[in-house]
Design a protein around this nucleic acid. Structure first.
Length: 113
DNA sequence: ACTGTGACACTGG
DNA sequence: ACCAGTGCCACAG
Protein backbone atom coordinates (compact mmCIF):
# COMPACT_ATOMS: atom_id res chain seq x y z
CA UNK A 1 0.00 0.00 0.00
CA UNK A 2 1.60 3.23 -1.15
CA UNK A 3 1.98 5.84 1.42
CA UNK A 4 0.64 8.37 -1.02
CA UNK A 5 -2.53 8.63 0.92
CA UNK A 6 -5.24 10.99 -0.08
CA UNK A 7 -4.22 14.55 0.58
CA UNK A 8 -7.50 15.67 2.11
CA UNK A 9 -7.58 14.72 5.74
CA UNK A 10 -10.21 12.30 6.92
CA UNK A 11 -11.92 15.17 8.58
CA UNK A 12 -12.13 17.16 5.39
CA UNK A 13 -13.51 14.25 3.44
CA UNK A 14 -16.05 13.41 6.08
CA UNK A 15 -17.23 16.97 6.24
CA UNK A 16 -17.35 17.38 2.49
CA UNK A 17 -19.32 14.17 2.16
CA UNK A 18 -21.71 15.32 4.81
CA UNK A 19 -22.32 18.61 3.10
CA UNK A 20 -23.07 16.80 -0.12
CA UNK A 21 -25.81 14.92 1.63
CA UNK A 22 -27.84 18.01 2.25
CA UNK A 23 -30.64 17.68 -0.27
CA UNK A 24 -31.79 20.47 -2.48
CA UNK A 25 -34.39 22.57 -0.75
CA UNK A 26 -32.91 21.91 2.66
CA UNK A 27 -30.19 23.54 4.71
CA UNK A 28 -27.99 22.78 7.66
CA UNK A 29 -25.61 24.58 9.96
CA UNK A 30 -21.88 24.46 10.50
CA UNK A 31 -22.30 22.87 13.87
CA UNK A 32 -24.77 20.28 12.68
CA UNK A 33 -22.61 19.32 9.74
CA UNK A 34 -19.56 18.96 11.92
CA UNK A 35 -21.47 16.81 14.32
CA UNK A 36 -23.01 14.65 11.63
CA UNK A 37 -19.57 14.15 10.14
CA UNK A 38 -18.37 12.84 13.46
CA UNK A 39 -16.47 15.88 14.64
CA UNK A 40 -18.78 17.62 17.07
CA UNK A 41 -16.66 20.60 18.08
CA UNK A 42 -15.31 21.42 14.66
CA UNK A 43 -17.81 23.80 13.23
CA UNK A 44 -15.03 26.09 12.15
CA UNK A 45 -13.53 23.39 10.06
CA UNK A 46 -16.68 23.16 8.08
CA UNK A 47 -15.95 26.70 7.05
CA UNK A 48 -12.46 25.75 6.06
CA UNK A 49 -13.71 22.88 3.96
CA UNK A 50 -16.19 25.09 2.20
CA UNK A 51 -13.31 27.33 1.32
CA UNK A 52 -10.99 24.65 0.03
CA UNK A 53 -13.33 22.12 -1.52
CA UNK A 54 -15.09 23.26 -4.68
CA UNK A 55 -18.37 21.89 -5.99
CA UNK A 56 -20.12 21.77 -2.69
CA UNK A 57 -23.61 23.12 -2.11
CA UNK A 58 -22.11 25.83 0.05
CA UNK A 59 -25.25 27.90 0.12
CA UNK A 60 -26.99 25.23 2.16
CA UNK A 61 -24.69 25.68 5.11
CA UNK A 62 -25.70 28.37 7.56
CA UNK A 63 -24.65 29.67 10.92
CA UNK A 64 -26.42 28.70 14.10
CA UNK A 65 -30.07 29.59 14.13
CA UNK A 66 -30.21 29.75 10.35
CA UNK A 67 -28.24 32.97 10.11
CA UNK A 68 -26.16 33.70 7.08
CA UNK A 69 -22.65 34.28 8.21
CA UNK A 70 -21.16 35.87 5.17
CA UNK A 71 -20.31 39.41 4.34
CA UNK A 72 -23.21 41.38 3.00
CA UNK A 73 -22.59 40.91 -0.67
CA UNK A 74 -22.14 37.18 -0.54
CA UNK A 75 -24.96 36.93 1.89
CA UNK A 76 -27.18 38.36 -0.74
CA UNK A 77 -26.16 35.76 -3.25
CA UNK A 78 -26.56 32.97 -0.78
CA UNK A 79 -30.00 34.13 0.08
CA UNK A 80 -30.87 34.32 -3.57
CA UNK A 81 -29.67 30.79 -4.26
CA UNK A 82 -31.53 29.42 -1.31
CA UNK A 83 -34.75 31.07 -2.23
CA UNK A 84 -34.30 29.64 -5.69
CA UNK A 85 -34.40 26.21 -4.06
CA UNK A 86 -37.63 27.07 -2.36
CA UNK A 87 -36.19 27.87 1.02
CA UNK A 88 -37.92 30.66 2.85
CA UNK A 89 -36.65 33.26 5.23
CA UNK A 90 -38.03 34.86 8.31
CA UNK A 91 -36.28 38.16 8.54
CA UNK A 92 -32.58 37.49 8.31
CA UNK A 93 -32.85 33.85 9.06
CA UNK A 94 -33.92 30.79 7.29
CA UNK A 95 -37.12 29.28 8.55
CA UNK A 96 -35.17 26.50 10.22
CA UNK A 97 -38.02 24.51 11.70
CA UNK A 98 -39.21 23.85 8.20
CA UNK A 99 -36.04 23.65 6.18
CA UNK A 100 -33.29 22.28 8.35
CA UNK A 101 -32.10 18.93 7.13
CA UNK A 102 -32.00 16.23 9.76
CA UNK A 103 -29.06 13.90 9.26
CA UNK A 104 -29.69 10.28 9.98
CA UNK A 105 -28.43 9.69 13.46
CA UNK A 106 -25.30 7.60 13.60
CA UNK A 107 -26.27 4.45 15.36
CA UNK A 108 -23.18 3.90 17.41
CA UNK A 109 -25.63 2.14 19.63
CA UNK A 110 -27.40 -0.30 17.36
CA UNK A 111 -30.96 -1.19 18.08
CA UNK A 112 -31.27 1.92 20.16
CA UNK A 113 -34.95 1.53 20.61
C1' DA B 1 6.83 21.94 17.52
C1' DC B 2 4.61 26.43 17.40
C1' DT B 3 1.60 29.96 15.57
C1' DG B 4 -1.96 31.62 12.87
C1' DT B 5 -6.26 30.55 10.65
C1' DG B 6 -11.34 29.83 9.95
C1' DA B 7 -18.00 31.36 5.77
C1' DC B 8 -18.44 29.04 13.96
C1' DA B 9 -21.14 28.31 18.68
C1' DC B 10 -22.39 29.95 22.99
C1' DT B 11 -22.94 33.07 26.85
C1' DG B 12 -23.60 37.30 29.12
C1' DG B 13 -24.52 42.25 29.19
C1' DA C 1 -33.16 41.08 20.15
C1' DC C 2 -28.34 42.62 19.17
C1' DC C 3 -23.40 42.74 19.89
C1' DA C 4 -18.81 41.61 21.94
C1' DG C 5 -16.13 38.53 24.07
C1' DT C 6 -14.54 33.90 24.84
C1' DG C 7 -13.95 29.02 23.83
C1' DC C 8 -13.08 25.64 20.33
C1' DC C 9 -10.35 22.23 17.46
C1' DA C 10 -7.78 20.42 13.81
C1' DC C 11 -5.26 21.92 9.69
C1' DA C 12 -1.53 24.47 7.06
C1' DG C 13 2.71 26.85 6.84
Amino acid sequence: MPRSAASPSALSKAIAATIRKIPRGKVSTYGAVAKAAGYPRCARHVAKVLQSVPDLPWQRVLGAGGRISLSAEYALEQRFLLQAEGIRFRGKRVDMPNFEHIFSPRRSVPRAR
